[in-house]
Amino acid sequence: MSILVNEQTRVLVQGITGRDGSFHARSMQEYGTQVVGGVTPGKGGQTVGTLPVFNTVAEAMAETGANCSVIFVPARFAAHAVREAADAGISLVICITEGLPVLNMTDLSAELKDKPVRLIGPNCPGVISPGQCKVGIMPGHIHKPGGVGVISRSGTLTYEVVYSLTESGMGQSTCIGVGGDPIIGTGYLDLLAMFEQDDQTDSIVLIGEIGGEAEERAAEYIKTSVSKKVVAFISGRTAPPGKRMGHAGAIISGGKGGAEAKVNALREAGVVVVDRPDQIPGALA
């Protein structure tokens, strides 16, 4: 029945009065997501479209019964916004904002470890369970309900993959953009475990890229703990070392983070690694 978000998810938009926040609040509503309100400090009492605005997350939760929050606030306030949502008791926080200093994330990840909250992102497109709930900025119409779980470090590349899945008649259970930063809230491992448990999901697509060693760790995990079919694509095979390729986390540095090691580790774990995004549907079939 999909993972992370579904028809029961009640979404709060932090930064709802901003340009991006208001635009995507409406687009999520149009997709059918239960958006229940928004938060902008100092603007409590206003409305954005049909949605009430509150000053704090705690207040918004009490009034609306929200259980998920999506963050669109500017980078310098984003860590605080995540903290506020976690402290108020929101169980799923999705941070779209790009540009958080990495030290904000080392602090946050240490703090959140002891709290009953899951963070997705930052610097991510969000999460969608097609036909049920979209929490993020992805174009909803390219998705289709089905059995493929998608985990990705990228935005548009995920759309590319989803589009080719949908065109081939393969729907998706849930698609998660985990974010392009060096340190993120939720990585491959937790999501692989959830997809492994999820009844609706019968195969998994993993879209990785250069930088760090998360794909190598995912490979180890898949080898021991994932029985469902996994197909992967790694971008950045031709990226030069030492240069940041758009995403803050997409950099080959200190001899680490290259694509080849990732491809090899995944293949060794029995994952089918394809050379082009449009080969994914064929590899899943």
Binding site: S154, E160, G180, I207, E209, S235, P277
Partner: peptide, 10 residues
Amino acid sequence: GAGLAMATMD
């Protein structure tokens, strides 16, 4: 998009 841009180069 950065991921798509890398995939295009590749």
